[in-house]
Each structure stands twice: as structure tokens, then as C-alpha cells.
């Protein structure tokens, strides 16, 4: 057990999986000598050498295309795209091939690759470094889309993603990379992909979120308890796609009220899918319209103004109180 930041926990997952299985290969821009611009791959090239940690030329499409080839051969590539804002350069490789090779080859080939990439705002970064575009991937059949919310589940989910037989897009919140530490056990730990986690039980309201928004969501739930005497049930999706609605539906059948929170733009975001599932499966249990707290449907502003863009504790609290009052 050691107290680790998310960066250290992810590094541990990579290091242990590489040690265990020589088919695990890390590749990407600056992942070797530099250890990744956020240091997630720090030290791996020293331990495993430059045949297992590939500093690639600057070309995202080639990084992903090459990963697909490696994966079809039977390796388990874990590629890093330096920022999710530059993963559109490789979008076609994911959409046209990674997500389809299993189907196109009628099961002869599959693509057990992981695409790790930092996402999200709140770190005073330049343009293209703050977006939250998980919906693109979640919308693509054949892909899995995972977003951890803390060091410990980041480590477990990354291990699961590496072991998963299908391609996984793995978003890491830059705002969480060094935000806090958690105890992370030395022994390998996994978490099932496709299973949301119940973080806090409650009978009055269901709060559903993931990634960097879990922290303000939990904070708002605490405030509701302290100030309003409200018991909110809090669920961390962890996997955006495939979305498992069971726990969400059960919760809302109990509480009758829900708020969905994400920093991705509101329209056509993951929240829209969550709300649809709840309306389909728990409509007669709903006692109030469901609220979404999300990024606005605009380009995230330059960093001096991004705070007003990102969903905040206050915004979540306001939405929760609105749902409770209805």
C-alpha cells in the first residue's frame, strides 16, 4: 500500500502489466526518454527498453494505426495520445478499423489495444488542451470508453483495459492527475469495465457523474446532507460505454429524482443517453424532471474564463435543489 497520485497509480498499472506480460507495448509521443509530458510513463523505458517503450515520430494516425496492427498480431499495445484534443488526427483509425476489425474479419482478428489520453479542463492550458469529447468515442459501436475518477480506480481500470480483448479509449483527467492521493495496493487489482459504482447510498435523489466531476458532485451531496437533510445516492459511471443502466435504473426507482453531471458539452453528451435510459426504464417512478449539469454548447473558453464554463459545486447544488423542489 502506498499513497499515490493518479499519475503514479497509472504508472504502477503500466509497470506491473508490462512486467507480467511481454506482449504489453507502450508507444506514443514523448513517452520514452521524457516519460510522457505528464510523466505517466516515467521510468518505463529504463526498465523495459526501447523495444517495449516506443518514442514515436509525431503522427497520431500512425501511432494508432500501428497499434491496431500490433494488436491484430497478438500484442497488447497501450498507446498514449498526448492530449485528447489531438486524437482526432487518429479518429479514422479508431472508427474505421479499431472498432470494426473484429466484425469485419468475422471474429478472426480483434484489437486488444488501449488508447490512453488526458482530457478535460481546469488546468489553465492552451486551446485544444481542455476538451471533454468522450461522446465521440462512446457513440462508436465496437469501442469501450472508460473514465476513472481517482488514483485507485484509475489503476484498476487501466489494468482491466489492458487485459480487455476489445479496444478501450481511456480518458485521464488532467485536473485529477495530481489533485489528491489515495492508498493503492501493491498487488494487482482490477475493476470490471462496464460497471458503474455506487459511492454513497441515499433515498432522496440520485446524482450520476464520472471523471473530474465526481469531486464537486460528492461535495454537493455532502452539502445537501448537512444543509438540507437530504440523502443523495451518488453513482460514478467509470465506464461511459458500454453503459450499464441497471444500477442507475434501480437507484432512480428508489429516489424518483436524478441529476446527471459532466463537463462535456450538454447537447448529445453522455448525460443525454443516461437520461434516455432512465426515461425508458424508470419513467413511472420519476417524481421530477431530470436535470443535466454540463459544459455549455460552445468551445471551452481560453483559460482565464474556463472556470465559469466548467460545472461547479454551486451549479450542481442548484440543479439538485431544483429537482428536489419540483
Amino acid at each position: 500500500m502506498a499513497k499515490m497520485t493518479m499519475v503514479q497509480a497509472l504508472n504502477l498499472a503500466l509497470q506491473q502489466e508490462m512486467e507480467k506480460d511481454d506482449s504489453v507495448i507502450v508507444l506514443g509521443e514523448d513517452v520514452g526518454v521524457d516519460g510522457g509530458v505528464f510523466r505517466v510513463t516515467d521510468g518505463l523505458i529504463n526498465q523495459f527498453g526501447d523495444q517495449r517503450v516506443l518514442d514515436t515520430p509525431l503522427a497520431e494516425s500512425a501511432i494508432v494505426g500501428m497499434s491496431i496492427g500490433m494488436a491484430a498480431y497478438g500484442l497488447k499495445p497501450v498507446c498514449e495520445i498526448q492530449f485528447s484534443g489531438f486524437s482526432y488526427q487518429n479518429f479514422h483509425q479508431i472508427e474505421n478499423h479499431a472498432a470494426r476489425l473484429r466484425w469485419r474479419s468475422q471474429g478472426r482478428f480483434h484489437v486488444p489495444m488501449v488508447l490512453r489520453t488526458p482530457y478535460g479542463g481546469g488546468v489553465r492550458a492552451l486551446e485544444h488542451h481542455s476538451e471533454s469529447r468522450e461522446a465521440y468515442w462512446a457513440h462508436t459501436p465496437g469501442l469501450k470508453m472508460v473514465i476513472p475518477s481517482g488514483p485507485r480506480n484509475a489503476r484498476s481500470l487501466l489494468v482491466s483495459a489492458i487485459q480487455d480483448p476489445d479496444p478501450v479509449i481511456f480518458y485521464e483527467s488532467k485536473a485529477l492527475y495530481r489533485a489528491f492521493r489515495e492508498e493503492v495496493p501493491d498487488a494487482e487489482e482490477t475493476l470490471p469495465i462496464g460497471k458503474p459504482q455506487l459511492l454513497k447510498e441515499g433515498a432522496d435523489l440520485t446524482m450520476i457523474s464520472y471523471g473530474a466531476m465526481m469531486r464537486p458532485t460528492l461535495e454537493a451531496a455532502g452539502e445537501l446532507k448537512d444543509k438540507d437533510g437530504i440523502e443523495a445516492e451518488v453513482i460514478d459511471l467509470l465506464t461511459i460505454s458500454p453503459l450499464d443502466e441497471e444500477i442507475l435504473v434501480q437507484s432512480v426507482k428508489k429516489t424518483g429524482r436524478a441529476v446527471v453531471i459532466h463537463e462535456a458539452p450538454r447537447s448529445f453528451g453522455p448525460g443525454a443517453e443516461v437520461v434516455s435510459r432512465l426515461v425508458e426504464k424508470a419513467f413511472y417512478y420519476l417524481e421530477a424532471p431530470i436535470e443535466r449539469v454540463a459544459g455549455f454548447d460552445i468551445i471551452i473558453p481560453s483559460f482565464s474564463r474556463e472556470k465559469a464554463y466548467l460545472p461547479s459545486f454551486e451549479r450542481i447544488l442548484r440543479a439538485a435543489r431544483k429537482v428536489l423542489a419540483a
Binding site: 465559469a308 464554463y309 454551486e314
Partner: peptide, 28 residues
Amino acid sequence: DPMDMFDHAYAEMPPYLKEQKADLAREL
């Protein structure tokens, strides 16, 4: 204030974006 973050998204602002802008203005 940061209200001008809504400028320049489209030539003409869709109605739901006007709502979002009004929400932020109220919040501020």
C-alpha cells in the same frame, strides 16, 4: 464578466444556447 464566451460560436445563436447564456448570466 465571462459572458462573451458565447460569442462567435455561430453566426446566429441557436435558441438553446441563448438559454444557456441566460443561465450563466443569472448565476453570475
